[in-house]
Every structure is written in structure tokens, then in C-alpha cells.
Design a protein around this nucleic acid. Structure first.
Length: 223
DNA sequence: CCAGACGTTGTT
DNA sequence: GTCTGG
DNA sequence: CCAGACGTTGTT
DNA sequence: GTCTGG
């Protein structure tokens, strides 16, 4: 699965990598991104890509309160088209979540070992995501996102039984725009067609990353 | 009909 | 908003 | 994902 | 054990 990640690269690189037209905010390097935190996601608007800041943990537009977002940090690719919490966002509000590594915790005899998963070339990932807009009782808008998960590929199969849905760059436009003009019945095959196995590698890191309050280069240092 | 849930992970 | 369960 | 709280009363 | 917050 994907419950913690990093985004260290700067805005300039991000803008180039994802072809962002307009930038909303400054970015600081993040070594330990946890659910509920506000991070940039890439959204498409009429052929133009835009970076928007949103909170990790999807709050569906119909939710009565925002705490549901704590539990909706991931969406299973296999069922996302049917789940009430995700189906509307899947049709209307897809996004790409930039991350240059994500973390998994592997059970060991002594407890848990944190691992960081990256690309072999250390390039940034584009993770398939969904976003939502929710209105709180006071009328303020909350923008949130979630990350899709799928079956693990060979390099990470031994670590965990899920992994985030990593888009290859040539699949990113399809993810953002490929649903235009399709019927609800076609959404399922859309999901299956967009994925191909990414290259991944992993290494152990310090358990300092366990605590979300730790957000510094030690989180990505090989243990 | 209305009421109540709406999710993932991992672990058992 | 929509679906399931009672 | 992990860490940390998990409660009431009354007073500041 | 379970929920909330980061």
C-alpha cells in the first residue's frame, strides 16, 4: 500500500517533469509525508496541467464529517469503480500524485523495518490519484486526494501485498483525460488498460520515519 | 418505505 | 449521491 | 502508514 | 482494541 511518501525535488523540476502550466504555491522538500497533510497534486484542465495543494485522505462530497478521510488514503484499483466513496471522483476528478519515493513497513522478528521504495533512476513517480471537494458546515471548501493501490510487482512482492499504482509518463495523459466520452460501463476496462509494471527498487531506512513528526533527510538515509 | 453506511491495511 | 439492509 | 489517545468536572 | 490526528 502507500501510507507514507517523500517529495524532495523542487518546484522547478516538478514543473518540467509534469508539464505544469500554472503554479499555486512554493514547495519545501518533504522527506516524510503523512496522511492529513497538504501536498501538491497534478490535475488536468482542458489540456493544461495544473498543480494544486490538497489534503491527503479523501473526503467524498457527500460525507457528513471529514474524519472519513483518515480511512480513505488509498483506493483499491480492482474495486474503485464500484465503491460509493470513490466512483464519482473516478469519473470526474482524477489526479497525479508526485512522489520520489514511498515507504513500507516490513514485519520482522524484532518488530518492523521501514523500507523506502524508489525508481532505479531515482526519478519522480506519478501516482494515480483521485481528488474531491467537500464543504464543511461553515461553508468552507476542503480539497482532498487519495492514492490508488494495486497488486505488487516482482521487485516489491516480498515486501508487501499491495503497492501504489505507479503511472508511466506515457500513461499519465490517459489517466487524466482518457475517460472523456466513455460510459460508466467502460470505466472498469479503462482502469485495467492504464497500468503497466514500473521499475522499482528498495532499501532499508531508519525507523525515525515511523514518527510523522520527523521530516528530515535522515528519513531517506540508508539504514 | 426509511436508516445507515459509504474504506484500506493487516491480522486472526 | 447511492446502495444495502431491515 | 505510525503514534497517541482513550474522560469528566470545573476553573483559568 | 479502536479511533483520530499527523
Amino acid at each position: 500500500m502507500c501510507g507514507r511518501y517523500s517529495l524532495i525535488i523542487g518546484m522547478e523540476q516538478l514543473v518540467i517533469r509534469f508539464g505544469i502550466g500554472r503554479v499555486e504555491t512554493e514547495l519545501v522538500p518533504r522527506y516524510n509525508v503523512a496522511p492529513t497533510q497538504v501536498m501538491p497534486v497534478v490535475v488536468g484542465q482542458e489540456g493544461n496541467r495544473e498543480l494544486r495543494m490538497m489534503q491527503w485522505g479523501l473526503v467524498p462530497f457527500w460525507a457528513k464529517d471529514r474524519t472519513i478521510g483518515n480511512r480513505l488514503i488509498n483506493a483499491r484499483m480492482e474495486t474503485v469503480a464500484e465503491k460509493p466513496a470513490f466512483k464519482y471522483a473516478l469519473r470526474q476528478r482524477r489526479c497525479i500524485v508526485p512522489a520520489d519515493g514511498y515507504y513500507e513497513w516490513q514485519k520482522t522478528g524484532a518488530g518492523k523495518q521501514a523500507l523506502r521504495i524508489v525508481r532505479p533512476d531515482r526519478e519522480v513517480f506519478g501516482l494515480a490519484g483521485l481528488w474531491e471537494q467537500w464543504q464543511d458546515p461553515a461553508g468552507d471548501l476542503l480539497f482532498t486526494y487519495t492514492i490508488l493501490t494495486t497488486s505488487p510487482t516482482a521487485p516489491v512482492k516480498h515486501i508487501h501485498d499491495r503497492m501504489p499504482l505507479v503511472l508511466n509518463p506515457e500513461q499519465e495523459d490517459f489517466w487524466l483525460y482518457g475517460l472523456q466520452g466513455t460510459t460508466p460501463a467502460e470505466v472498469g476496462s479503462f482502469i485495467k488498460n492504464l497500468w503497466s509494471p514500473p521499475e522499482l527498487t528498495s532499501y532499508p531506512v531508519s525507523n525515525l520515519v515511523n514518527n510523522p513528526r520527523n521530516d528530515n533527510p535522515l528519513c531517506i538515509a540508508p539504514a
